[in-house]
Write a protein that binds this DNA or RNA. Structure first.
Lengths: 220, 220
DNA sequence: TACCAAATTTTGACATGTCAAAATATTACA
DNA sequence: TGTAATATTTTGACATGTCAAAATTTGGTA
């Protein structure tokens, strides 16, 4: 019914919508999906005619109920698959994003539910990203990042939002993954610099951009 | 590189080529894949230009080395996935063919090898179909079927070539699956009829067509 | 050997998704 | 408020895969 291309556009819009309620520009969608601007505009018309988004030319788009539900299901598939690949199949967390990108369009409801069952109906994926419920409801918890959290004391890593393989491999080498504890050794706004110490003792120097993608729970 | 459509055509030709060495007509391919005859012809030109088949108009097609290798890899993916779905995920053997039909185009080499490893480098899928090696070599063993095997004595089911879900469910209800033993209670050519008794004691009446799809190893 | 039926190929059309480049709208700023 | 820079949409083209229906080839048979 809905092509994998349509699913990709919906998922993209959904993810952007998660972080702000403003209408989303076609240019942003185009750059995220790495297609030409005109391509995104054309697809917006298609999605709009299918009732999956509302689209006001030059103003932007917004998912409808139907579009939102569909997108949530795609995202659910993606994240359950990621966790399955790590937990059941033993893949590295840095590899599973791109694998899931392919599989999310090919896995049936039956197989997905079986994965979900084998995983014990999990609520987060290997990166700490929340998994939408089977009904299509996503609960995003608000966490501070390494550039917004209070200094001093232990922090528990709960989520890493930058999914690029190289970055994840770097973090893993330093023992920085959801569930692990870290401490901020120094943070300097002017220098765009955060130095993190993981429980392995190693210090890791990060710029603000990557540091902002590491979400933590301040120690209790 | 090669689209999932191309993969489907190659796999189809490969499977037909497994059972005879004659050139394969475009009409047969079209009917197998449920596309219009002209569609198959168009694709034969494409495949031919890509060097995956040799194509003589009105005479038929044949896989090249390259095409054969590619097709074997697709079939390998299909059969490893089927076994994974049954052995690791607990799906019913009657459901996995259609699931694998989708997944075979989306599973990476990395994931496939991991499946293969988890399954202990298996040589046959849940239906007893042989799995091509990672190098793309397929070893088909010759087995008699319920309409060609000798009468009398126990027979071990080794393979079921009809993959339709309803038929497989029927067999399962009667305890007829690879590894199980059966006995031919009667076979009547004129009536197109075979009556099989499984170890559960139940008798199953089959026509010649379905009976021919059940391959057995005569008891030693 | 000529013709007919069946199979195959060709033709013209369409659907989906994509791009580059031209046209148009929006926004910011001078 | 007018204009320039930027973003968006439109246009025309292309690639892949598909169909229905017309044209062609093949092979058997009279």
């Amino acid at each position: 019914m809905t092509s994998s291309t349509v699913e990709d556009y919906l998922k993209c819009i959904y993810l952007i919508q998660t972080r702000s309620t403003d209408p989303i520009s076609t240019g942003l969608i185009a750059s995220q999906l790495k297609v030409a601007p005109g391509t995104a505009t054309a697809m917006m018309k298609t999605l709009s005619e299918s009732g999956l988004i509302t689209y006001e030319p030059y103003r932007g788009v917004r998912l409808t109920q139907a579009g939102s539900k569909l997108a949530a299901h795609v995202l659910r598939r993606h994240r359950v698959i990621e966790l399955f690949l790590v937990e059941v199949m033993g893949l590295n967390w840095s590899d599973v994003h791109s694998e899931a990108e392919l599989l999310e369009h090919a896995v049936s409801e039956l197989v997905l539910d079986r994965m979900d069952e084998m995983l014990g109906r999990p609520s987060v994926d290997p990166h700490g990203d929340p998994i939408p419920s089977p009904r299509g409801v996503l609960r995003e918890k608000e966490y501070p990042s390494l550039i917004s959290c209070p200094l001093g004391g232990l922090l528990k890593v709960v989520r890493v939002t930058d999914q690029s393989a190289n970055f994840l491999r770097l973090l893993e080498r330093h023992g920085i993954m959801p569930g692990k504890e870290v401490e901020i050794a120094s943070r300097e706004d002017a220098a765009d610099s955060v130095i993190v110490r993981s429980s392995s003792g190693k210090a890791l120097h990060l710029g603000f951009r990557p540091a902002a993608s590491i979400l933590v729970e301040p120690g209790e």
